[in-house]
Design a protein around this nucleic acid. Structure first.
Lengths: 121, 121
DNA sequence: CGGGATCCTCTTTGATACTG
DNA sequence: CAGTATCAAAGAGGATCCCG
């Protein structure tokens, strides 16, 4: 019963996972990599026109440190940097996909998440 | 391929689900309800000593609007309000549990999420 | 007991400009 | 192209007080 979930940040395994992928944009980055394959920095920006370079960099660095994304840099001019999912990133995507499928199933039943959420904009 | 994931908030089903349960504390609330059963307002505060009444109320209201949590009020004095998981809340908990299990498996392999995350505190 | 209303802080984001 | 640095705005979260 007591799983150490006393509210200390990261006390729950679920929360630790969310602390890595819960940030804004993060699910999209993983999704894009999983569905469209490896991407370059500029390609992400084209996929997500409203993300800033700062945040995009931060998210990619974090996913890289978390071992979910691989960063491959070609020493050309201009530089070519390509990001891809690691096996762990792929495994995580599969699990997140389950959440997405539940969302879609519920929405087919009339569920309206937007109505519940206090969206920030 | 294109699943509508252009970065507009909530464009992805996964993101819609995260918009509901991705907020801080939310995973804990669901976890507590799933493992310890129905809880009263004050019980949550005892479980999570650092949460404020404002945020706890907000989260519970949101989970209620999202149909994941049931709020039952007894018209006694003093009032007794009890929160419980709906069937959807239970289904979601099961799916989130998968993420937690992956986290635990990876951690057993040496994965260190804290090292990756830019924790806010 | 179970909150609602405020105020205030701190983090997170976004915009912009510059660089190897 | 792929970032870095800086600044300003926004919003979430915390603390506090009060009420039914």
């Amino acid at each position: 019963m007591d799983d150490g979930c006393d509210g200390t940040p990261g006390a729950c395994p679920v929360d630790r996972m969310f602390s890595v992928v819960g940030g804004q944009w993060t699910t999209y980055l993983i999704w894009i990599l999983a569905t469209d394959g490896p991407q370059r920095f500029g390609a992400f920006q084209r996929h997500l026109p409203r993300i800033s370079t700062k945040v995009l960099t931060e998210r990619l660095r974090m996913l890289e440190r978390a071992g979910l994304v691989d960063r491959h840099q070609a020493a050309t001019i201009p530089p070519q940097v390509t990001y891809s999912l690691t096996p762990r990133g792929q495994e995580l995507h599969g699990a997140m996909n389950i959440l997405g499928q539940i969302a879609q199933k519920w929405e087919a039943e009339g569920w309206r998440p937007e109505a519940a959420v206090l969206r920030t904009g």
